[in-house]
Design a protein around this nucleic acid. Structure first.
Lengths: 394, 394
DNA sequence: CCTGTCTGCTAATTCGTATTAGCACGCCCT
DNA sequence: AGGGCGTGCTAATACGAATTAGCAGACAGG
């Protein structure tokens, strides 16, 4: 039907050569390219009338910029499970991209296997974009080192360990991350100040940098604190009322997709900050964990995942325990969800939107060759909340 | 650093021509391309050793399609206000695009004025994509007719009236919409069957096709029913507990953006299916509307916007009225949110995700020149819910 | 009138890959 | 020996846009 217009078509319509069209388009005003206003206007008029835009692929072939920023997500973007995780990032990215006048290219062509995508597959189209943002809880070191080795301009949203290049030297990965270590250390300190003697950290503590960083911050302050892996997600429970309230709009869409992966690894077992409501996690495992915690005299729990924090608090309250009276619960993630009762969870807030914004800024700096701090950590905002209190009996 | 390998490099290393490398790579076995196993293996060996991968840009350059689908949203995509509206569409779009091996280009470069984008601004980049999907509650007829006139391949998500072309003939706009008319007619019929004599329709009923279609369905069945414009959004109320529960995760991000636009038009006053919780709408206007409805003997209200339905139900209950005992409330949108108390709102569900999927399918068909129904309406799934009941006294 | 310079444009080439046309060589047949 | 044919490969070209080199014409200076 509608054939794609080329510069030759424009040239023909404007009665000039393809070269001239290119020169006009790129505003070349060098001595070797003198286009009088009259001709220039004639060309521009045709371009406006036809809505011609240069083929981005042809431009990239010559290493030109297209005002297209790539967004590569290591999981699917839109399915509801990841929605709340990606959304704030994307919101910030969109805002910045708009300011820069860039379009965003979502690499949906990369096949998803097992819920994960990889940049380097047979037909990777990364180079269509001028540069890319990488999002995901965890990014394989091999991908990062290869991107760095190929000199591809990218910025990771989230801190990443610097991988080794094939030649053995470490690569400097550009990122905009959140300073989980400091934030976790701070809330841990706060817990100690409130008189808690036995603390527990609940979370994988490894695999993803974000998990490791939190554990590190915890152990810096409370080296003798407990570290427990996250509870296994229970099957969905009957009591759907609570669950629905939290996730209703997307509920129907989701139906088909099984939420908990079959996998046994800690990583897969805890989807990134997914908004799994308390009720769904209040299975046996959480109860067991609570037994263990109480048995060991723990008075304050710090959970990486808000859902785990919620499940623990819920479970504790069901047993007649007061939160934070008998047990303090801290969320090392997005603590800004209301607790049953009142107030928010104590913990900190991840500046996701700002991370998105800054990541675009950094990528732009990289692309235009500006000087810039390649590795940036943003502060997490502490949330006082209502689930961390003085230890009982003080 | 490491320059990208080309077929010429491989050719040199394997002591053959670039053509041969290409032939081997693409497994060409035609009569005109006979490569003996010996040579083929030599080439393959070099490819394996070097890890060479063909540049997808160069490959695409030869074909007509770029495998890029544009996504044009008439409002910003990611800001939380529109999030729940766009999300299911995008989820479906992403899924289909992935199956087709296409990347998605979000036109964030189009400037946003007054919360709205326009395709046709001075530097529109629509033609970067092979074709585009158009999303938005309302799309100006001028935009549609120009797109059609320019023969640009696109599909609208949502039914649109066919605009007139400059020459006066109507343009056939390709779309995948939801059949609001039938769905509304069906629930209206149901209300009549339940004995309701006086019905009211609450919604703009115009401007956007989606609004007009619902009013049409209502009036087809209940020609004497009342039609009221939606209540004006009240300022945010103090009772934030309910509100927070519904929208907490994004709350902090949102802070800066004022939610209710200053505008007075019905369109702006009712953001598309935004998850504005009941409490926020329970202002004075809703109370007034309730007065009017009850005064006129209305026993069943059909509200286009779930938020309005929620506000009315909430307000009614506050006055000690039973829902649906004294007043039935029907949501003509995504009825799948739990009501205070139990169950869901009665009404219907908009198959947003499926609309996204089908729209991509239709666009693909258009692009590849296949025959396809250009205007498709999907059925809305009826939701029995708990807010529509027999009229009292029967 | 011839040379030099400036202006306004374009032909030719490039990027990396795919495809088409066809060359050079060897073999068989008559 | 020469025509015909099959084999194994390559040269040339195309895709769309950007860039470089440089041509043709106007005009000035000598």
């Amino acid at each position: 039907m509608s054939e794609r217009l080329t510069q030759r078509d424009i040239a023909r319509l404007a009665r000039v050569s393809q070269t001239t069209v290119s020169l006009v388009l790129n505003n070349r005003t060098a001595a070797s390219a003198r286009i009088p206003v009259e001709t220039r206007d004639r060309v521009l008029k045709v371009i406006r009338e036809t809505g011609y835009v240069a083929d981005p692929l042809a431009r990239r072939l010559l290493q030109q910029r297209n005002q297209i920023l790539g967004v590569f997500t290591y999981e699917s973007v839109f399915p509801s499970a990841s929605a709340d995780f990606y959304h704030p990032f994307l919101s910030g990215i969109e805002e910045s991209a708009e300011e820069l006048g860039c379009d965003l290219l979502l690499f949906t062509s990369a096949p998803v296997t097992d819920g994960h995508r990889l940049v380097f597959h047979e037909n990777n189209r990364l180079r269509i974009a001028d540069g890319s943002l990488l999002l995901g809880r965890r990014i394989p070191a091999a991908e990062l080192s290869r991107l760095a080795a190929e000199n591809y301009p990218f910025v990771s949203v989230g801190r990443r360990d610097n991988p080794l290049l094939p030649d053995g030297t470490p690569a400097l990965i550009p990122y905009v991350g959140a300073d989980y270590t400091t934030a976790t250390a701070t809330v841990t300190t706060r817990a100690l100040q409130l008189g808690h003697k036995q603390l527990a950290f609940v979370g994988p503590g490894q695999d993803a940098e974000s998990s490791a960083d939190r554990l590190l911050g915890f152990q810096q302050i409370a080296p003798r604190g407990l570290h427990l892996p996250p509870p296994a997600p229970a099957e969905r429970v009957k009591d759907a009322a609570l669950a629905r309230r939290a996730s209703a709009p997307a509920e129907r869409e989701r139906g088909a997709r099984s939420r908990s992966s079959k996998g046994a690894s800690a990583l897969l077992a805890t989807p990134p900050a997914s908004p799994v409501p308390p009720a769904e996690r209040a299975g046996r495992a959480v109860g067991d964990m609570l037994d263990e915690l109480l048995g060991r005299g723990v008075t304050a729990v710090l959970a990486e995942d808000l859902a785990d924090a919620a499940a623990l608090a819920h479970s504790a309250r069901e047993r007649g325990l007061a939160v934070p009276g008998d047990l303090s619960v801290v969320a090392l993630g997005d603590a800004s969800r209301p607790v049953e009762g009142d107030g928010e969870y104590s913990g900190f807030h991840i500046p996701r939107k700002e991370m998105g914004r800054r990541a675009v800024g950094l990528l732009e700096a990289v692309l235009s060759g500006e000087e810039a701090e390649l590795q940036q950590l943003l502060n997490c905002e502490l949330v006082e909340g209502s689930t961390l209190g003085k230890v009982k009996g003080i």
